[in-house]
Amino acid sequence: MALTISCPNCGKRNGYEFRYGGEDKGPRPAEEGLTPQSWCDYVHMNNCVAGIQKEWWCHKNGCGAWFTIFRNTLTNLEVEEPEAKL
């Protein structure tokens, strides 16, 4: 496997130039009304999808940008759309 990631600034690059930033969980929730469970769910819990997921990456050894991509965790290949065929 040699993961490649498409950086919006730098184009397709070797995956090791990037840092994985977790599943896309949406914006930080408002603090009011948060329970320990709901906060834990936001901070720690993952879907661990075997398939396509939307996720964050940072081009840490390149331009430094944060961005999202869709990737198939079964093949380690980036895909264009979440609905893309496996």
């Binding site: 496997m1 040699a2 993961l3 070797n14 995956g15 090791y16 840092r19 994985y20 993952n46 661990c48 075997a50 997921q53 965790t73 079964l74 093949t75 380690n76």
Partner: peptide, 14 residues
């Protein structure tokens, strides 16, 4: 580890 989730059990050149 390769620091991104995946189920491939593939090795890498890096």
């Amino acid at each position: 580890m390769d620091p991104w989730p995946n189920y491939t059990t593939l090795t890498t050149a890096h």
